[in-house]
Simulated scan of single mutants.
Amino acid sequence: MSDLLAFLQHLSATAREVTLGAPVPGAENKAGAGGFDPVTELDRGAERALRGAIEAAFPDDGIEGEEYGLVRPEARRRWLLDPVDGTRALICGLPSWTTLVALLEDDRPRAGFIDAPALGELMIGMPGQTTLNGAAVRVSGCTALSDARLSSTDPYLFEGTEAEAFARVRRAARLTRFGYDALAYARLAAGHLDLVIENKLHRYDWAALVPVVRGAGGVIGDWKGGDDFGSGSIVAAASQELYDAAVQLLSQ
């Protein structure tokens, strides 16, 4: 475990060499006409650097990233990479963007990190522990929706019945903040937020969140009370009671 921790720290430093302090380049639109899904050369450069470091250390492992796809899909161990989560924040000069890396074994997240280079915050989740810059952190333990600090990246993520479901939770929570992408899950793990609800997440979006939240004592699952993360609909909570209360409103 100490070797894995050291390697995750090495991967963080590797990506930061590309992204931290670099001028923000112009963004291309991957979504095509009618949408906006930005990507920059920092996204691509950071992923290339991460892939190179993993290939050098673990040449038999699979690697799957947002920008360059999947290699060695048959491998028992796979690394999931999102080199810049929150590219919209990056191109707007906001510090809330992160780098996400997760290690999966038999398709289940074992360890990972949420790194916020512009804030100098590296949060690593391992079995039984999550640390922020080396110091252990814990979730708040909040159990009641009426006390909960809720977050989601964008209110316009939700449409139709999903928008109605999220609105039920939002009305029951104490307060709601938007716009933090993966950083919201790090804030939940550190005890500053209590509940995060999102949808339409890809594997490279959610894989690192699972060990970080669980290592800090939190609960993370899907909108139906299970762990079908492949659905892309995610709920992270500071306690089982809070998770269950949110799922009850979401599933009505």
Rank of each mutant, 00 (worst) to 15 (best):
A182W: 13
V212W: 11
G35N: 01
I197P: 15
T131R: 12
G217F: 04
T130Q: 09
L188D: 07
G215K: 06
A165C: 09
I220C: 05
D60V: 06
V212G: 10
S231V: 06
E55W: 12
L4H: 05
Q129T: 14
A216Q: 10
L100M: 03
D115T: 10
A172Q: 09
M123G: 10
L175Q: 13
R44T: 02
G230D: 04
G26R: 04
D61L: 00
Y156F: 15
L90D: 04
Y156T: 09
Y180L: 15
E47A: 02
S2Y: 03
A172R: 14
A116Y: 01
G230S: 07
M123T: 15
E55K: 15
A207P: 06
G62C: 10
R149H: 15
G21T: 09
A165V: 10
A118L: 03
S231N: 13
L157P: 07
L201G: 01
L42Q: 02
R170G: 01
F113P: 05
Y156W: 12
Q240R: 07
N133W: 03
K200M: 13
C142P: 08
A31R: 05
L201I: 00
L132C: 10
I124K: 12
L94A: 11
L122H: 10
G21F: 04
R168A: 15
G191C: 06
A6Y: 02
E55T: 14
G21N: 11
E121V: 05
G93C: 01
F158N: 03
V39M: 13
S151I: 09
T161G: 04
G230C: 07
L103M: 14
A116Q: 02
R138F: 07
K30P: 03
F58D: 13
Y204Q: 13
W79L: 00
V210F: 00
A190M: 05
G221P: 05
K224C: 11
E162V: 01
P38W: 13
R78T: 00
A167Y: 11
E67Q: 12
G179S: 06
R110T: 08
D43A: 05
F158W: 07
F58S: 12
R78E: 06
R214T: 14
N199K: 15
R187P: 10
G35M: 02
G217R: 10
L250G: 02
D228G: 02
R203S: 03
P23S: 11
C142I: 06
G134H: 10
L80M: 11
K224L: 15
A163E: 09
R78D: 01
R48P: 06
G52A: 07
R48A: 14
N133C: 04
P155T: 01
R16K: 12
P95S: 06
L81R: 00
S146R: 12
N133R: 07
Y180W: 15
S2H: 09
D147E: 12
R203L: 12
Y243C: 00
L201H: 02
G34M: 07
S140Q: 12
A13H: 07
I114R: 13
I54F: 07
A182R: 12
G34P: 15
A216N: 08
I124T: 13
P211K: 08
L80K: 08
A173G: 02
V139R: 14
E159G: 10
G86P: 11
Y204E: 14
T131E: 08
